[in-house]
Computed example of a mutant assay.
Amino acid sequence: MSYAIFQYAAIALILAWSLGFAAQRLFPHRCRAVQAQLAQHLTTSPHAALRALGAKLAPQQTASGAGCGNDEGCSTCGTCSPAPPPAGNVHPLVFHPRPKR
C-alpha cells in the first residue's frame, strides 16, 4: 500500500515539474509576471523565512544590459519597446504565376 502512495506522489511531482517547465518555455512573460507577484507577496510576509524565499524568487532585472534605458529595445525585461525593423532592407514577396502549358 505504501509503495502505491509513493508511486502516485512521484508521478504527481514529475507531472507538476513538467507542466511548470512547459509553461516557462511557452509563456515566459506570464510566468515571469506570476513569479514577480508571488515574490512581492512573500517579501511582505511577517515571517523571516518567507521573506527570504520571496527575495530568492524575485526575478532578476537586467538593469545594465545592452539596450536598457535607450530605445534599442532588447525586450528581456518587458519594459522596453521592441526594436524597430531596419529600414531599407525590406523586400516585398512577389508571386509569379506559372506559365500555362
Results as ranks from 00 to 15, higher is better:
Ser64His: 12
Ala36Asp: 07
Trp17Asp: 09
Ala63Phe: 06
Arg51Tyr: 01
Asn70Met: 04
Pro86Trp: 05
Ala66Tyr: 13
Ser75Pro: 00
Thr62Lys: 09
Ala39Leu: 02
Gln24Asn: 13
Ile5Leu: 08
Tyr3Phe: 14
Ala33Asn: 10
Phe27Met: 09
Ser64Gln: 13
Leu13Met: 14
Leu38Phe: 04
Ala22Gly: 06
Gln35Glu: 04
Cys77Met: 03
Thr43Val: 09
Arg101Met: 07
Ile14Asn: 01
Leu15Ala: 12
Glu72Asp: 12
Cys77Ala: 03
Ala83Arg: 15
Arg98Cys: 10
Leu53Ser: 12
Val34Pro: 01
Val94His: 02
Ala49Pro: 00
Ser81Ile: 02
Pro82Met: 03
Ala87Gln: 08
Asp71Val: 02
Gln61Met: 06
Cys68Pro: 02
Ala39Thr: 01
His91Met: 11
Arg98Asn: 08
Ser45Gln: 09
Lys56Tyr: 10
Leu38Lys: 04
Leu57Gln: 01
Leu38Pro: 00
Thr79Asp: 08
Ala52Pro: 05
Pro85Tyr: 07
Thr79Lys: 14
Ile5Val: 13
Ser75Lys: 11
Asp71Leu: 12
Leu53Gly: 04
Ala52Glu: 11
Arg101Pro: 15
Leu50Met: 08
Leu15Lys: 01
Phe21Tyr: 14
Pro99Ala: 10
Gly65Ala: 09
Ser45Thr: 07
Gly78Lys: 05
Thr44Glu: 03
Ala10Pro: 00
Gln35Asn: 04
Gln40Leu: 10
Thr43Lys: 03
Ile5Asn: 08
Ala52Thr: 07
His29Glu: 14
Cys31Phe: 05
Ala87Cys: 06
Lys56Val: 09
Thr43Trp: 00
Pro85Ala: 13
Arg101Cys: 05
His29Ala: 15
Val90Lys: 09
His91Cys: 11
Gly73His: 03
Cys74Lys: 05
Ala36Pro: 03
Phe6Lys: 14
Gln61Asp: 15
Leu13Gly: 01
Ile11Arg: 09
Ala23Thr: 00
Pro46Tyr: 09
Pro97Gly: 03
Trp17Phe: 14
Thr76Asn: 13
His41Ile: 10
